[in-house]
Amino acid sequence: MPFIVTEPCIQCKYTDCVAVCPMDCFVAGPNFLVIDPDGCIDCSVCVPECPVNAIVNAADATEAQRPYIALNARLAKSGHWPPIRRVQPPLPDHAAWRDVAAKVHLLVLPDLQAE
């Protein structure tokens, strides 16, 4: 089962994980990254690179993290967010958001109504 990006990434968007991904399977939104499950080879090299521990194996996802399995797949395939292949600076206020637990309400999503 592939790895997924979960809530701690929201409003931080650290991209250290992108630098080590051998499959270029990260996709970037305005304030969040996702992993394309079809590209992920389950190598786990991205996991220790995330400074906020946002990346988990989908098979090990907690109850609270399980919705991110479908969210990663849907957003990766939506075509609204571009693949990201190079490290970029985190969001400007990343330090203020780094330890905030409940921030899913801040996730900026593309309009997927028509899909």
Rank of each mutant, 00 (worst) to 15 (best):
D36V: 04
A58F: 10
P2W: 08
E63V: 11
P30G: 10
P8T: 08
V45E: 15
C43M: 00
D111T: 09
D99V: 01
D111C: 10
V20R: 07
I35K: 12
K77C: 02
P30N: 12
V47M: 06
L75F: 11
P37M: 02
V47Q: 05
Q65V: 13
L109M: 14
C43Y: 07
Q11I: 03
L106V: 03
A114W: 10
V47K: 01
I10L: 09
P30W: 02
T6D: 14
E49Y: 06
G39E: 00
C40F: 01
L71I: 10
V5P: 08
A73K: 12
P83Y: 12
V5F: 12
R98V: 11
A114G: 07
A101V: 14
F3D: 10
C21W: 05
M23A: 15
Q11Y: 08
V34K: 00
P110H: 07
E115Q: 10
A59E: 13
P48N: 02
G29Y: 10
V87I: 04
Q65A: 15
D99N: 09
C40P: 00
I35M: 14
P30H: 13
N72F: 06
V34P: 07
Y14Q: 07
I69H: 08
L106T: 03
E115L: 03
A76T: 08
I4P: 06
I41Y: 08
Y68L: 13
P110A: 14
H94T: 05
D93H: 15
A54H: 03
P67Q: 15
A76M: 02
P51F: 00
L71P: 13
V87R: 14
Q113V: 15
P89D: 02
C43W: 04
N72D: 01
A95W: 09
V20S: 02
G79W: 00
A54R: 09
I69L: 05
V52P: 04
F32S: 14
I4N: 06
L75T: 09
P90K: 04
P67C: 10
A58Y: 09
Q11C: 06
V47F: 01
D99F: 01
M1F: 06
T15Q: 00
I35N: 00
P92Q: 09
C43E: 05
P2F: 01
M1G: 04
D60Q: 11
R85N: 02
A54G: 07
P92T: 05
R74T: 11
A114T: 15
F26I: 00
V108L: 12
W81A: 04
C9E: 12
E7R: 15
K103E: 10
V108S: 11
R74A: 06
D16A: 15
P37E: 08
A59P: 11
K13P: 02
Q65T: 15
D99L: 03
Y14T: 01
F3V: 10
M1K: 04
I4S: 04
E49L: 02
P82D: 01
A59S: 15
C50P: 03
I10A: 04
A96M: 05
T15E: 02
A70D: 15
A114Q: 14
F3A: 11
C17P: 00
V18L: 02
D24I: 00
P30Y: 09
A70V: 09
L107H: 15
